[in-house]
């Protein structure tokens, strides 16, 4: 296990696959703004749009990691800016607990990140992506409880 990972980390061409959940009003709009501004960033992150970060069930995070995502990012509005008043506050509690728990099981904290990105923070979106990708690269491919692909 540890050896596998060592091998993977040494291979510099490891391109992690990261699933991101973005709220429609702030972070998704911020990511759109990065696009409109033609800000270039790594292509590792693939986005699932939800209306609010409060919709993101922490079990989605677990599920993504199980499917084989090397990392997960959840991004919502800054505290106080939630389009639905409080959704991001609920999200914050849920993710804080889930992340600490996953870390306790041995899932590197780099694999699960969260961010507050507003609709005007296209450049912050790029920075977040870069940091998340860098973090996941440093811990290598997800190998703890990735689902074995069955082909029958």
């Amino acid at each position: 296990m540890t050896e596998d990972k060592a091998k993977a980390t040494v291979t510099t061409d490891f391109e992690p696959n990261i699933v991101a959940f973005l709220c429609n009003w702030c972070s998704y709009a911020g990511a759109d703004l990065a696009g409109t501004s033609r800000i270039q960033y790594p292509a590792n992150v693939k986005v699932i749009r939800v209306m609010c970060s409060g919709r993101v069930n922490p079990l989605f995070v677990m599920n993504a990691l199980q499917q084989g995502a090397d990392g997960v990012l959840v991004s919502g509005c800054h505290p106080g800016d939630c389009h639905y008043m409080h959704g991001n506050y609920y999200a914050r509690r849920r993710f804080t607990l889930m992340r600490d728990f996953l870390e306790y099981l041995g899932v590197e904290p780099e694999r699960f990140r969260a961010s507050w990105v507003s609709a005007s923070e296209g450049s912050k979106w790029k920075e977040v992506i870069e940091e998340v990708v860098e973090g996941v690269k440093s811990v290598g491919p997800m190998d703890q409880f990735k689902r074995r692909q069955l082909n029958w």
Binding site: P79, G80, H86, Y89, Y90, R92, R93, F95, T96, R99, P109, R113, A114, S115, W116, E127, V128, E131, V132
Partner: peptide, 11 residues
């Protein structure tokens, strides 16, 4: 929730 809940891991 509390507005002041911890969020040290959030970017």
């Amino acid at each position: 929730f509390s507005v002041d809940d911890k969020e040290d891991f959030i970017l």
